[in-house]
Every structure is written in structure tokens, then in C-alpha cells.
């Protein structure tokens, strides 16, 4: 408790020092925001649904939109673990009743999905609206956000297939979220007022209590875990991640052939950095076709390079299945050319 009051005192002193700046106003600095400006940027939706736009969308429409705009990363059923952690799955009908996802404590859950964690439906609406789709954030209209969310809720078996989600009934859906009772704020890591004082948490009380023992602190040293052999080499040549002089050297983990591999990996890195590897594999289909499949199909075609560069840039659908490739306007032309040449020459 004394710790807490001391920090308050320190904060008060810091506060006092900035108060010396207190002019009545910073004349000539800043201007009133217009209501149109506030409307354009103030898009957040709170747990009490303040900020929620009016609108509606049904599961069927959501299914179409999801396939078109979301499935390339998240999989058709929000189940994909290829690019991001899965959105859907992992909850039961019983969880919907209790509001606690049982798999989180029983250890039965192989991986947490968005709906095994989230306790506020506003969070999902807010995030789809502000940040999705990945390459064209803020392009969805409110009705589209409702529809996509309706589809996700249906995947999670929270709402039926003929459901229409709207600003009118989203509050009822909140009461069905499988992990709605799954959060706790009973901890000491909130830096503001405690729950007792109208804020959050226990007021900064830590949950561990180590003692600064100095001599003969324990009878023996228990090693809980050591570095697995695969992890020793998974991060590349450690000798090349430290200076070549000084008190120590980086440990040689791979050997000289590593340098050769690294050179070959440069274009691969560009492909990874550009986000291509999220959907394409070298040989076979992940979400989009494998590079070697692309090479085979375009082999011998006139201006294969030009055609592919245009496709990468603008995106497209139909050539390899129903899942479209998003446009890649964010990549430099030179980089796209490098990648296309690499693919056509048998990327490896």
C-alpha cells in the first residue's frame, strides 16, 4: 500500500512541473474540429455500442463478402492458420450457455481462435470496420461489416443461417458470445485507478513475491528447460549476428554453406517481405497456386512476364479457383518484376 501512495506522490510532483506551462490558452495553436471531420475519423465502437453505425447484413451476404474479401487469408470458414491465427472454431453449445470457453482451462483446445477469446462483440465489429480487409482497410460499408460479422457468428454456431445482424439486435448477440464471461481485471498491471476507486484492477499489487536472498539461497539448481538442437540453428548463423571482435564471438551454428544458402534466399526474402508467401508455396497450392505451377502454365507464352506483372499488381480471380488474389499496389514495380522473373525461372 505504501508503494502505491508513494507513486501517487511522485506523479503529483511531475504534474506540478508541467503546470508551469499552464497558459489560459495556447493562442493561435490548433483549431476547432468540424463535425464532418470528427465523423470521418471517430469510428470506434465501444462495448456499450456507443459509436455503432446503423445498418444490417445477413449471413448469406456475409458468406459472399467473406469469400471475396477475407477467405484468401482466413480460409473460407475462418479456420485457416496459414496467415493469421484462426477466427472461428473451438467453442461448444455449452460454452454459449455459460459464457466461458471450457477448452481454455481444460487444455483440450489445440489453438485459441478469436471467438474462444473475445468477450465483447463490439471489438470484432470495430476491428473489421477500421482495419479490414488486409490490403484495403476502411473500405467496407457498415452493412458489409454487419454481414461479415453475421457470417462469422454463424460459423461459430451462435446465430442460425437465416440470421440478419443489425444495430438493433447486436446487443442480444452479445449475450450469446461463448467467452463473454471469460475476462478478469483482477490483477496489478493496470496503471490507473483501482476497481475500488472506480477504475480497473487491484491497484498495482504484484502477483509474485520474490525475495532478494544473497547467500545459499537454495540447495541445488533445477534446470527446467534447455535450448533444443533445432532452435540452436533455426535462427541462422549466430556467428554472423555479433561483432567480429570484442570479448566474445557469436557461436558458429551452421557452417560455411550457410552463406551460399543465404544468397539464394534473397528473392525468397523479398517474396516473404512482400506477403506473397502467405498464400503461395514453392511447389503446391496453399491459398493461391504454387510458383512452379505458375511457371508451368506460363511456359512458352508470349510476354508471360508482362502479363504476370500486371496480374500481381492488379490482383485477379478465376485463373486458379474462386479465391481472388488481392491487388498489390503497395509493392514497387521493380520488386514485382524481380519476383515475376524469379517465379518464371523456377523459383526455389
Amino acid at each position: 500500500m505504501s508503494r502505491f501512495s508513494k507513486s501517487i506522490l511522485v506523479l503529483a510532483l511531475v504534474g506540478a512541473s508541467t503546470a508551469t506551462f499552464a497558459f489560459d490558452s495556447f493562442k493561435g495553436v490548433g483549431r476547432p474540429a468540424t463535425s464532418a471531420e470528427v465523423k470521418a475519423w471517430d469510428i470506434d465502437v465501444r462495448p456499450d455500442f456507443k459509436g455503432l453505425p446503423k445498418g444490417s447484413g445477413n449471413v448469406e451476404r456475409g458468406n459472399e463478402l467473406f469469400e471475396e474479401k477475407c477467405a484468401s487469408c482466413h480460409g473460407s470458414f475462418g479456420e485457416s492458420n496459414e496467415v493469421f491465427t484462426p477466427l472461428a472454431g473451438g467453442t461448444t453449445a455449452d460454452d454459449i450457455k455459460t459464457g466461458r470457453v471450457k477448452g481454455l482451462s481444460s487444455g483440450e483446445l489445440p489453438q485459441r481462435t478469436t471467438f474462444t477469446k473475445v468477450s465483447t462483440i463490439s471489438t470484432v465489429f470495430d476491428y473489421i470496420q477500421r482495419a479490414m480487409p488486409w490490403t484495403a482497410p476502411k473500405s467496407l460499408k457498415p452493412d458489409e461489416v454487419y454481414a461479415i460479422l453475421a457470417y462469422l457468428l454463424n460459423l461459430q454456431e451462435i446465430v442460425p443461417g437465416d440470421f440478419t445482424l443489425s444495430d438493433k439486435n447486436i446487443g442480444d448477440v452479445q449475450k450469446l458470445l461463448p467467452n463473454r464471461n471469460g475476462m478478469t481485471t483482477d490483477h496489478g498491471m493496470w496503471p490507473g485507478a483501482s476497481a475500488k476507486k472506480g477504475g480497473i484492477g487491484n491497484g498495482g499489487k504484484p502477483d509474485t513475491d520474490n525475495k532478494a536472498c544473497m547467500k545459499n539461497c537454495k540447495p541445488e539448481v533445477l534446470i527446467g528447460s534447455t535450448l533444443p538442437e533445432y532452435a540452436r540453428t533455426a535462427h541462422g548463423e549466430l556467428a554472423e549476428q555479433y561483432r567480429s571482435f570484442g570479448p566474445v564471438r557469436g557461436t558458429r551454428t551452421l557452417g560455411p554453406e550457410a552463406a551460399k544458402k543465404a544468397a539464394e534466399a534473397t528473392t525468397m526474402e523479398l517474396a516473404t517481405k512482400s506477403g506473397c508467401m502467405a498464400c503461395h508455396g514453392m511447389k503446391s497450392k496453399i491459398v493461391g497456386p504454387g510458383y512452379n505451377e505458375v511457371m508451368t502454365r506460363y511456359a512458352g507464352q508470349p510476354d508471360a512476364e508482362g502479363k504476370l506483372v500486371a496480374k500481381v499488381k492488379a490482383g485477379g480471380a478465376g485463373a486458379w479457383g474462386s479465391i481472388p488474389m488481392p491487388p498489390n499496389g503497395h509493392l514497387a514495380d521493380e520488386d514485382i518484376k524481380t519476383l515475376v522473373k524469379w517465379i518464371l525461372s523456377g523459383a526455389k
Binding site: R100, V101, K102, L104, S105, S106, R112, K117, S119, G182, M183, T184, T185, D186, H187, G188, M189, W190, P191, I200, G201, G204
Partner: peptide, 15 residues
Amino acid sequence: IDLQPNGLHRQYTSI
């Protein structure tokens, strides 16, 4: 959010 052994997530952990 920090998953605890009892299956609850600690929310608003910041410090």
C-alpha cells in the same frame, strides 16, 4: 490478454 491457468484472460494488463 494474458491467459491464466483457470481459463480466464487477464484484460487491460499494461504495466
